[in-house]
């Protein structure tokens, strides 16, 4: 369960302070499928980074399954990122010069998982890239890279998948495929939070949160 309490994030560039998140409080229950929408620069990625334990709030608290994340050690945070969370970045963030299959294996390397090859292959198959395992990121289209990133996020079977515009580079058919995958994972009990600009994608969600200028301006359950 995700709980944000009066969370703010302030970026300082020189003398200018920018409130990317302004006193946001939010609760997302286990097993939910949430879409976050909002115009560009409204603070979506900022919030997602905090939820993914990549960044810390300037003020306020973030509780994940009841634990105050702000009090956790570096190693505990690394373990949470490794086991509990699968993160799909807006900009893919695949390792360059490294094959797709190795990229998908990477979280399992740090987890010390057995049968990494097999699991990585199955994960790639789930996103329709069974044949592309040996390609490097620069040999894949943007949409294919996006799907490798999705495969890497779900390969560890995390309880929570956070995806920053996972369908941003996909055509309609692939978008539907990936969204069906998310729905399937959600039906199997995973919590899924995704950012999107597309209403069709948001249509798959059970709950849609809208951000503007660092505030939550809409929160509807479908």
């Amino acid at each position: 369960m995700i709980e944000l309490e009066h969370v703010s994030k302030v970026y300082r560039t020189g003398d200018i302070a920018l409130r990317a998140l302004d006193d946001v409080s939010l609760r997302i229950d286990d097993g939910d499928l949430v879409a976050i929408m909002g115009p560009s620069g409204s603070g979506k990625s900022t919030m997602m980074n905090i939820l993914g334990c990549l960044d810390v709030p300037s003020s306020g608290t973030y509780r994940l399954d009841g634990t105050d994340v702000g009090r956790l050690s570096d190693n505990r945070l690394a373990d949470i990122r490794n086991r509990k969370i699968g993160f799909v970045f807006q900009s893919f963030n695949l390792l360059p010069r490294t094959s797709a299959i190795r990229n998908v294996e990477l979280p399992m390397v740090y987890a010390g998982t057995k049968d990494r090859r097999g699991r990585a292959r199955r994960a790639l198959a789930r996103v329709g890239l069974a044949e592309r395992g040996n390609h490097r990121p620069n040999e894949l289209s943007g949409g294919q890279q996006q799907r490798v990133a999705v495969a890497r996020a779900l390969v560890t079977d995390p309880t929570m998948i956070l995806a920053d515009e996972p369908t941003g580079n996909l055509d309609t058919a692939s978008t539907v495929d990936v969204m069906n995958l998310f729905v399937e994972l959600n039906e199997a009990g995973r919590t899924i939070v995704l950012i999107t600009h597309e209403p069709e994608v948001a249509g798959f969600a059970k709950r849609v949160i809208t951000l503007r200028d660092g505030h939550i301006v809409g929160d509807e359950r479908r």
Binding site: N75, A78, R83, F87, N93, A111
Partner: peptide, 11 residues
């Protein structure tokens, strides 16, 4: 950054 984001510890 990528390695840390997907769970690499400092060590």
């Amino acid at each position: 950054g990528i390695r840390k984001a997907i769970g690499a510890r400092r060590r």
